[in-house]
Design a binder for these strands. Structure first.
Lengths: 146, 146
DNA sequence: TTGCGTGCAAACGCTTTGCATATTA
DNA sequence: TAATATGCAAAGCGTTTGCACGCAA
């Protein structure tokens, strides 16, 4: 999205407030801090990572609030929850449709342009049901020497 | 795969042993029991569900052994680990390439023919890395009344 | 007898919950 | 002041680990 969001360490308070407003989320101190951090660039962070970075910059946000906030953000569609590893969740600040490439050796998660994956319609799907999300995860590992 | 595997409550001991042999897994009592249960049909079971079904049929398999066995099966490629919900893992007995449709309301997991999803090659991928798996999860929910 | 598999219970890591306090409208 | 958000600690849950025992090669 806008290039102004790239190459910054954190969003300004005003940018963060704008994002929360557009999603109808009350802009509390803690939510603004989390937003400023997570949306500084397109990235995938876990609750743990956010907690660690917030305490590094001396922002007082409790563990419960980080979890509550990320859950709220995911429910309102502000962020996308990415489930790769059954041990932890990542929260993705990239609002554009895209898929993921997961490096199984390092745990690194990378975005993949959505054009490379095509989902045709699902003729068997009941009309009472609707597709709420399509998650594509491509797992890669270092090629084995032999 | 073979229709002989469908419509049975459990595999025979011989069928289970054949599967383990083909994957180089030593056929212990407990591994055979788990195999006979999981491969009775194409299905997605969690460790918890396997544990519950085994104890119902009076097969003595401990929790640790169920987890160890499923992990071993996944590593050798006998079963496919499916991560949908960050809370638990499912183990898929369908050996054919396919994708998944997840009913977010009921937690039900359904197979989707792979032909409906096409992954083109990934030109950005380093030659030192190889794709070890592609997981596609289509999340569906009941259509909201309005 | 050496190695591998198993069982039990305890430990672990991530996430959620209960409840009192603080903040906001 | 009524409603919502926060913080802390404890609980919860699926999973893993440590270690002793048992079994097979």
């Amino acid at each position: 999205m806008s290039a102004t969001l790239q190459n910054r360490d954190r969003l300004t308070r005003e940018q963060a407030q704008g994002l929360l407003d557009r999603h109808g989320i009350a802009p509390t101190e803690q939510r603004l801090e989390i937003t400023r951090l997570l949306f500084a660039r397109h990235q995938h962070l876990s609750a743990e990572q956010i907690l660690a970075q917030l305490s590094m910059q001396a922002s007082q946000v409790s563990k419960a609030t980080v979890y509550n906030t990320l859950k709220l953000f995911a429910e309102t569609g502000l962020v996308r929850e990415v489930i790769i590893d059954s041990a932890k969740r990542f929260y993705d600040s990239n609002p554009n449709p895209h898929h993921h490439l997961f490096h199984t050796d390092s745990g690194r998660l990378e975005d993949v342009a959505p054009a490379r994956v095509e989902i045709t319609d699902l003729p068997g799907l009941s009309p009472a049901m609707e597709v709420v999300g399509v998650d594509v995860v491509i797992r890669v590992a270092p090629r084995k020497a032999q």
